[in-house]
Amino acid sequence: MSAGKTVDIELKDIAYSYGPIEALRGVSLSLGAGATGLLGPNGAGKSTLLRILLGFLEPDSGEGRVLGYDIRFERDDIRRRVGYMPEDDCLLPGMDAVTFTSYLGELAGMPRQEAMKRAHDVLFYVGLGEARYRFLETYSAGMKQRLKLAQALVHDPPLLFLDEPTANLDPRGRTDILELIADIAAKKDIRVLISSHILSDIESVCSQAVILNKGRVAALGRLADLRQPNFNLFEMRVKGGSGKFLKDLTGLGCRVEETEDGLLRVFMPVGLDRKKVFRLAAEDRTQIRHFLPSRTSLEDLFAQSVGVEG
């Protein structure tokens, strides 16, 4: 299979209503390799979309294919190849993690002994190796989150749906889970679709993003393209010097704004040689500690896409 070119999720005009409430009103998108962030305000239709992709819901209209299988008629083929990590806490009481994980592997169609073997592997992978014989009821929130990831991985699906994977985690748990997801997404024939409210999480692991708003696709594309750097606007942080530096910058034709937490936003005129800025700093003994062409932040992009002023 040639990775990168295949389209893994393709939807055309998907619409879905819960009674009078229109959750999705014509969603068309196609997603390929890598990790994709699924963003949107509450009620934008993210969960509905995931449920449709899994075949929990049948769209009112429109068609779609996941990994080449029709979402209406080939649900079992899709579910066999998808790992789903639900948003809410879920487990089966009265058993340990190995039983739980291998059981769900078996339900996905793994032979029994294979499921058992693989359960140990994925539990070690998500960092539950030590705790794998403990009863699930005794697990902490962070461990339950890892367990949900383990059960999504057990049958080694080529496509993962992760719904709010870092919800309710503390900063350490969050970075751990994100590192795991990034590691999985780096495998070239595994695709990951992550729905999240935490934009910095999406920024750290996803290469592309879909923003839903009011049941429609508001933005779609590679994060790098969506967030084109603006080479006329630089963010800077400086330290020391006599303050002459800022004045001199204005002298070069730059417009300088300072935000409340000390970040300088410097609008440079077209064609200005950036070296001149460093020359000024050297003359004034000013340290330039931060120098970055400004990009639209994902948050700004999000706000633009869902139609709210910054």
Binding site: F56, D77, R79, Y84, P86, C90, P93, G94, L104, Q151
Partner: peptide, 22 residues
């Protein structure tokens, strides 16, 4: 007693039905 009640309580149905299971 717990066959279905436990699954409902712990939101486990979505784990079952995310798999090729009728």
């Amino acid at each position: 007693a717990g066959l279905v009640a436990d699954d409902l309580k712990h939101n486990a149905l979505q784990l079952y039905f995310a798999r090729p299971l009728a």
